[in-house]
C-alpha cells in the first residue's frame, strides 16, 4: 500500500495529465451532446455580442465606402432583375414544368457578418441572426454574387457559418453551359480559388463556365453561383479544375440566409445508406 502511495506521489503530474486528458477526450467524444451544445451556444452568444460591439465601432468609420459599395450592388441588382424578368417571362412554361418543390424560396433572411476567423485554428463566420430570426443549422448562406457557406451552429441571436473556404466544406456543382457536374471543395491556399473533383475528362467543360449549386445538395437550393472555371488540367480519369469563387470573402459584410430545404425523406434515406461517422461539429454533406 505504501508503495502504491509512493508511486502516486512520485507520478502525480502524469496522473493529473491522464485525468485531464481523459476528460478532454470524453468531451471530444460527446461534443454533439445537448449540454455541450448549450454551452457552445452560450459561448457563441457571448463572443458574438462582444464582437458585434467591437465591429460596430469600425463600421461607423467605413460608412461612406459601405454606401458606395451598396449603391454599386443596387445598380447591379437592378440590371440583373430586369434581365431575369425578361428571361422568366420567356421560360414561364418550362419553369412550371421543372419547378423544384423541395424548398421554399420565400423568406430569405438578411444578416450582418460580425466576425470572421481565418486562421489555422479556426475558419468560421459569425452572423447576427440566430434561432429567434428563424436560422437553423444547414441553412444556405449566400450573397447576390454567390454561395458563402452553410450554417453549422446557432444560438438565440447568432449563428456560425462554415464558409466555402473551409477544408471540410463540400458542395455538388453543375456547369451552366455544359451541365458537367462535380464536387467543389477548398484545399487550402488562396482564399479566392477552389477545386472541383469528379468531372470526367470526357466532359465538354470549358474555361470560363459558371458553376452553380445542384439540386442534389442536401442543404443548398440549386442554381446558386459558386464560381467560374479558371483552369482545367486533365488527369488520368478526371479533370483537375480550379475555380475562381464568386464571393470575395475578404470584403464580406452582409449575407442572405436561404430557407432550409424541406427534403427530410432524402436526408433520412442518405443517412441510412451512408456510414454514421460524422465529424464533431461539421457534417460535410454536399
Amino acid at each position: 500500500m505504501q508503495k502504491f502511495f509512493n508511486f502516486l506521489l512520485k507520478h502525480n503530474a502524469y496522473l493529473l495529465l491522464l485525468l485531464y486528458g481523459g476528460i478532454a477526450l470524453l468531451l471530444i467524444r460527446f461534443e454533439q451532446d445537448d449540454m455541450l451544445s448549450k454551452i457552445r451556444s452560450g459561448g457563441t452568444e457571448l463572443q458574438a455580442s462582444i464582437n458585434e460591439k467591437i465591429s460596430s465601432y469600425g463600421y461607423l468609420f467605413n460608412l461612406r465606402r459601405e454606401n458606395d459599395r451598396l449603391l454599386k450592388i443596387n445598380a447591379e441588382m437592378l440590371s440583373r432583375t430586369l434581365r431575369s424578368e425578361t428571361a422568366l417571362r420567356n421560360a414561364k412554361a418550362r419553369r412550371i414544368l421543372l419547378a423544384d418543390t423541395t424548398f421554399d424560396t420565400s423568406g430569405f433572411i438578411i444578416a450582418r457578418v460580425i466576425d470572421r476567423k481565418f486562421s489555422s485554428r479556426e475558419n468560421m463566420l459569425l452572423i447576427d441572426a440566430g434561432k429567434k430570426q428563424g436560422i437553423r443549422p444547414d441553412m444556405t448562406v449566400l450573397t447576390p454574387h454567390g454561395l458563402v457557406g452553410r450554417v453549422v451552429f446557432v444560438s438565440d441571436h447568432y449563428a456560425g457559418v462554415l464558409p466555402v473556404i473551409h477544408s471540410d466544406f463540400k458542395v455538388s456543382v453543375i456547369s451552366d453551359r455544359s451541365n458537367a457536374m462535380g464536387i467543389l471543395s477548398w484545399n487550402g491556399g488562396a482564399e479566392h480559388l477552389a477545386q472541383i473533383e469528379h468531372i470526367p475528362i470526357s466532359s465538354p467543360l470549358k474555361k470560363g463556365e459558371l458553376m452553380l449549386t445542384t439540386d442534389f445538395s442536401t442543404f443548398s437550393p440549386g442554381g446558386i453561383p459558386v464560381g467560374r472555371v479558371m483552369r482545367i488540367k486533365p488527369d488520368k480519369l478526371f479533370y483537375d479544375i480550379t475555380v475562381r469563387l464568386a464571393v470575395d470573402f475578404s470584403t464580406l459584410t452582409h449575407v442572405l440566409v436561404a430557407p432550409a430545404k424541406k427534403d427530410p425523406e432524402k436526408i433520412e434515406m442518405l443517412d441510412s445508406v451512408l456510414p454514421q461517422d460524422k465529424p464533431a461539429i461539421i457534417n460535410p454533406v454536399n
Binding site: 503530474a13 493529473l16 485531464y20 468531451l27 467524444r29 452560450g42
Partner: peptide, 29 residues
Amino acid sequence: RRGMTFGFAAGLLGGALSGNMGIVLLTRT
C-alpha cells in the same frame, strides 16, 4: 501540476467561447 490545472481551466473557458471544447481543453492541458 498547477500549470496543467490552469491549462485545463483555460481550455474550458476558451473551448466554451470557440465551440471546440474537447480539443482546446486537451491542447491547453
